[in-house]
Design a protein around this nucleic acid. Structure first.
Length: 840
RNA sequence: GCCGGAGUGGCGGAAUGGCAGACGCGGCGGACUCAAAAUCCGUUGGCCGCAAGGCCGUGAAGGUUCGACUCCUUUCUCCGGCACCA
């Protein structure tokens, strides 16, 4: 009797697969392709079971698809640039490249150990010049097309660190390393990508993704883009030195404009100086504005922060009513959205209402609820407790009084256009993508600043602009590259005059925005990829990753794809056909993390139970989209199961080894014994349902459960070969082995060999279930009276309705219960149930 | 506040209009053993009952239906996202 030794079995098949290169895939137009991808991992070092879930799901699907005859592209690589490497360098003095490569080596060995079926020839690492030169190449293409540009913008600045912080490094408004130091808003010059130019395309092309992407991801992206149609209206300002000063406001509710009680500007509004100029207290006003500017806060605090503001001393004219309204500054008006100024309509906007209450600004009601509204009385401004923000009917609005809000918005916008006081406008919440990082460990931005020529792109033939090694990293001050003279000082490629290189590096989201194209042609040194290869492999058939990337990565990637399409590199609009978001792995109801001390190490599991067991438990413990609570006892159950399967097959291996494949094909059911029927039926039913799970439902937990049921059926006091012919037994055990392949691939290979096969299982075709063998002969039909189960009968499958009803009524117990009752109705569902409805 | 998602035994979960609790974990009982581990067998939602059997039960309340975990309405709780976006 052989003993199942997972580690030995796993090492054996890992080596076999490696030496045969069985997971390498090459473009082959004669075969259907399947591009399966898990999101590019960041090489943070050790891998725990939380990381492994993603790959385990992907690998199960990859192996299944391969057996279905698809040419499966299943690559992996490393998101190798980024802050943690730089911070490790600052802390421990290890160069970022060494730290990163050591982590990659470690993670790679874990992935290999788990037997994930990657085509390792296609492995990429984004910190290698062979990769990031194409980041630079794409940047230059965007620069040529005006999609990359420079502008001053606000950043998070930590005065202690003397550096810019990423949004994620701001915790509760303070620096992550100095929790007593509030982050300041500082304006510096940065590079931006004009993603807003693609806002409509990003929105409209989502129809291609519907059905294939989780609805919530699409909703999140729609909200993020935040398209909003409204009207831009100009309010001429009075009294300012420049008499032509106009304040533009953006509103989605132009129908309420007769109710405007003020115009409110953002503290960062460009016109403030102009408005303050010439007023006796202008210094005081400047100071106030500066105070509000400095306290610009982001995130959740914003929504709860007290509304604050002050009167500028100037007035503007409402172009619709001709009324004079005061111009205010308010801390709740966002500089970056719309025009940075709003008209305040306290009666019909809650924020404006609160602002007016606080500063005692009087206002009229200009929208009354329609007759059907639950708000009965006509609204009166001095009695209102909150703003009335619904659509209604206009009052006190001159010629527009009496119109509905809908009609008024349309007419007033059109009138604004003809009178030259405004126009229809669409705004977006989406902003251009700031990609400059004052950091070392990233892709250098390929631009030179020349005193003569200004901004000069690095010529293509000089790419890549290499990141210098051995750079001193302190975490203090400006971009580390600025301190490397050999890097900074260059001749202008245009005129030869002395120039300076750009010393900022790119956001690492650039790296992951197009990496999946590179996988199709990872070693190309003339172009980012060969378009013909992309044409064959794209779109990605299945992308798997965490929900945390629902917005950033998945919008940036879509944006890059659209730019590439405009560059003529690809033909598709969308890179990813189907997206799957797996749930988290929890331990003690918390996400695994070193600081919480609740990590379950991948290698530990492989050593203790074997990675097949770890993979199986990962698939079994919960459906893949839900969070999974890791349980030591749970994984032990899976280990027990795999040992049981091994013993089961080992018991009959000798007997079955020499049965030829021909003999183990589906057997005629009529010739089968009762025991054989039970085995064949269960095996083919399992195959049918497991296949459905892999094809459509993606509920691998039920697949595992079904396979366990099959094994339970095979487990018997009596030896199976007593009542079943070896060829039947062999067929059933082979089906079991094949179904285990995506879940526990090493063990499956071993069992396959034990059953007498010389060829590796990976080349085996996923079998088709036999409907004839799966068919039950008899079914239990439930008999209900008034919807309550009162009896069961066994009948032949497919018994016609009438006969089934007769059988039900003939049942002695039912007959007795129905005696004297008046049957009102009967519902007969063949093979399922009979429900008799009787009058009470 | 707005937009999603979820709520089922002691636990993870199954059942998408037709027998609620598949499968696994844990528990209980037993076999094997000098003993233990491993393995195997049985049992395991609650209540009533010697039993046959009955009643209750999918967060709560209503509704649709012959029949609802499943569909609809209201509501509670938890999780996630967005949040002064004009």
């Amino acid at each position: 009797m052989a003993e199942y030794n997972p580690q030995a079995v796993e090492a054996k098949w890992r080596d076999t697969w490696d030496s045969l290169g069985v997971f390498n895939a090459d473009a082959d137009p004669s075969r259907p392709k399947y591009y399966l991808l898990e999101m590019l991992p960041y090489p943070s070092g050790t891998l725990h079971m939380g990381h492994m879930r993603n790959y385990t799901i992907g690998d199960a699907v990859a192996r299944y698809r391969r057996m279905r005859g698809f040419n499966v592209l299943h690559p992996i690589g490393w998101d190798a640039f980024g802050l943690p490497a730089e911070n490790a360098a600052i802390k421990r003095g290890t160069p970022p490249r060494d730290w990163t490569n050591a982590n990659i080596a470690q993670m790679k060995s874990v992935c290999r150990r788990f037997g994930f079926s990657y085509d390792w020839r296609r492995e990429i690492s984004t910190c290698e010049p062979e990769y990031y030169r194409w980041n630079q190449w794409f940047f230059l293409r965007m620069l040529e097309r005006g999609l990359a540009y420079r502008k001053r913008s606000l950043v998070n600045w930590c005065p202690k660190c003397q550096t810019v912080l990423a949004n994620e490094q701001v915790v509760d408004g303070c620096c992550w390393q100095h929790d007593d130091t509030p982050v300041e808003a500082k304006e510096i010059e940065q590079w931006f990508l004009r993603i807003t130019q693609y806002a409509d395309a990003l929105l409209d092309d989502m129809v291609e993704l519907e059905g294939g992407w989780p609805e919530r991801v699409l909703v999140m992206q729609r909200n993020w883009i935040g398209k909003s149609r409204g009207t831009r209206v100009r309010f001429p300002a009075e009294g300012a030195r420049d008499s032509k000063v106009q304040i533009e406001v953006f509103t989605t509710r132009v129908d309420t404009i007769f109710g405007a009680a003020a115009v409110i500007l953002s503290p960062a509004h460009a016109l403030l100086q102009t408005l303050f100029a010439g007023q006796p207290n202008h210094a005081k006003l400047e100071e106030e504005a500066a105070r509000l500017r400095a306290r610009i806060i982001r995130g959740a605090d914003l929504a709860t922060a007290e509304k604050e503001g002050f009167f500028t001393g100037r007035f503007a004219t409402n172009p619709f009513s001709g009324q004079k309204v005061p111009i205010w500054v308010g801390n709740f008006v966002l500089a970056e959205y719309g025009t940075g100024a709003v008209m305040a309509v306290p009666a019909h906007d809650q924020r404006d209402f609160e602002f007016a209450q606080k500063y005692k600004i009087a206002f009229p009601v200009v929208i009354q609820p329609v007759e059907s509204s639950p708000l009965r009385v006509p609204l009166k401004a001095d009695e209102m407790k909150e703003a009335f923000t619904d659509y209604g009917r206009l009052v006190n609005s001159g010629a527009y009084s009496g119109l509905t809000s809908e009609a008024a918005i349309e007419k007033m916008t059109a009138d604004a256009q003809t009178q030259g006081i405004g126009e229809a406008e669409t705004t977006y919440r989406l902003k251009d993508w700031g990609i400059s990082r004052q950091r070392y460990w990233g892709t250098p931005i390929p631009v030179i600043y020349c005193v003569q020529c200004g901004i000069v792109p690095v010529p293509d033939k000089e790419l890549p602009v290499r990141l210098p090694e051995n750079v001193l990293l302190t975490g203090q001050g400006q971009s580390p590259l600025a301190n490397v003279p050999a890097f900074v000082n260059v001749k202008c490629p245009k005129c030869g005059a002395p120039g300076r290189r750009e010393t900022d590096t790119m956001d690492t989201f650039i790296d992951s925005s197009w990496y999946f194209f590179r996988y199709t042609d990872p070693h190309n040194d003339r172009a980012p990829f060969d378009s013909a290869l992309v044409r064959y492999w794209f779109p990605i058939d299945q992308y798997i990753g965490g929900i945390e990337h629902a917005i950033l990565h998945l919008i940036y990637s879509r944006f890059f794809c659209k730019v590439m399409r405009d560059l003529g590199l690809v033909e598709i609009r969308e890179p990813v056909r189907r997206l799957f978001s797996q749930g988290m792995v929890l331990k003690d109801s918390a996400k695994m993390s070193k600081s919480k001390g609740n990590v379950v190490g991948a290698i530990d599991m492989a050593e203790k139970y074997g990675c097949d067991t770890a993979r199986m438990y990962t698939l079994f413990a919960a459906p893949p989209e839900k969070d999974l609570e890791w349980s030591e006892q749970g994984i032990e159950g899976c280990a027990r199961f795999l040992h049981r399967v091994f013993r089961l097959i080992d018991r009959y291996a000798q007997l079955l080894r020499d049965i030829s494949p021909r003999d183990s094909r589906p057997t005629k059911i009529s010739a089968a014994s009762e025991k054989e029927k039970i085995l064949l039926r269960k095996a083919h039913q399992t195959l049918r349902r497991v296949t459905a799970d892999f094809e459509a439902r993606w509920h691998f937990n039920t697949s595992v459960a079904l396979i366990m049921e099959l094994v339970n059926t095979l487990q018997d006091r009596e030896p199976l070969d007593k009542h079943a012919r070896p060829e039947v037994l062999k067929q059933v055990l082979e089906l079991l082995t094949v179904m285990l392949t995506p879940i526990a691939p090493h063990l499956a290979e071993e069992l396959w060999e034990m059953l007498g096969h010389k060829e590796s299982l990976h080349a085996e075709e996923w079998p088709q279930y036999s409907a004839e063998l799966a068919q039950e002969e008899q079914v239990e039909v439930v008999i209900q009276i008034n919807g309550r189960v009162r009896g069961r009968i066994c009948v032949d499958v497919g018994l016609p309705e009438e006969e089934l009803a007769e059988r039900a009524f003939a049942d002695p117990k039912i007959e007795q219960l129905l005696r004297g009752a008046r049957v009102v109705k009967r519902v007969v569902i063949p093979d399922k149930l009979v429900n008799v409805v009787v009058a009470q």
